[in-house]
Amino acid sequence: MLSRTADNLYWLARYVERAEYLARILDATLRLTALPLAYVGAGNEWQSAVATAGCADAFAAAYPEANEDTVTHFLAFSPANPSSIRCCLESARVNARAVRTALTVEMWDTINGAWLELKKWSDGPSSRQDFSSFLRWVIESSLRFDGSAYRTMLRNDAYWFSRLGLYIERADNTARILDVKYHLLLPAIEPVGGPLDYFQWASILRSVSALTAYHWVYRENVKPWLVAELLILRDEMPRSLASCYENLVQNADRIARAYGRQGLAQRQARTIRARLENSRIEQIFQEGLHEFLNDFIKDNNQFGAAVTQQYLV
């Protein structure tokens, strides 16, 4: 297939995934800030939402202060922020339109429909409730897109490249949210198990839609190292780094098999997966969670660059 087509599919998936992730962060932040201060601590949750979205610098350049208004506008609706939900959905559609013939009708309908629907909110939300329904709508659109890709696409390179985009983005997002909140996950900064931490951890889990999953997996109270373990190492957790790399290795290998040739991308994916497989959470904490996550984000980026170099240009 054309390199450009693969590139569009890859980015289409990334943008949709990113839009969903932003919606989840905003949703979790809204909940957190709705709680009485005593439950969440005095940190600026809106500032941390911006950091989690990976655009703290751009935000700081545009706004004097992080609060509900500025952050929701910046992360959800701002045309000036290329990573806002709005821009993500628009970029997703630009990419989709460029490869319409490589998409199934269902996928196109979802993206095109979302793009048309988006115009309803072009002046921003009318109320907090309206904003909540906007966020729900973004998440649902992403789920519908993902579902229609899963259920209607031929299992060929087009599908595999779009999955690579999805999982690279997802891995990046999960790593980022952990990194921004890592101080909360570190033991012994505050007495463990206080109400303050509970809501923060729950918020992290909620932002990756893993709150229920946590209880299914651990059947325990929310504990910071278990939250970290769930999101980094447990491969039954679909947004964990381990699960993302399980999928990345699989999809990269399928491409290599179909083309009868493998390269740097395949080797890198395997290396990263092996590192995740061989890690224990105690050891990660010992050697530094922040360092671990930083390295991972870098490796994940490099893997993305290898995919681009090998297939997409």
């Binding site: 054309l2 390199s3 040739r261």
Partner: peptide, 17 residues
């Protein structure tokens, strides 16, 4: 246009392969 490249007077397209 950017998908095509001319090498030694032959037109090629850039593909994932």
């Amino acid at each position: 246009g950017r998908d095509l490249v001319v090498k030694d007077e032959v037109v090629h397209m850039r593909t994932t392969e």
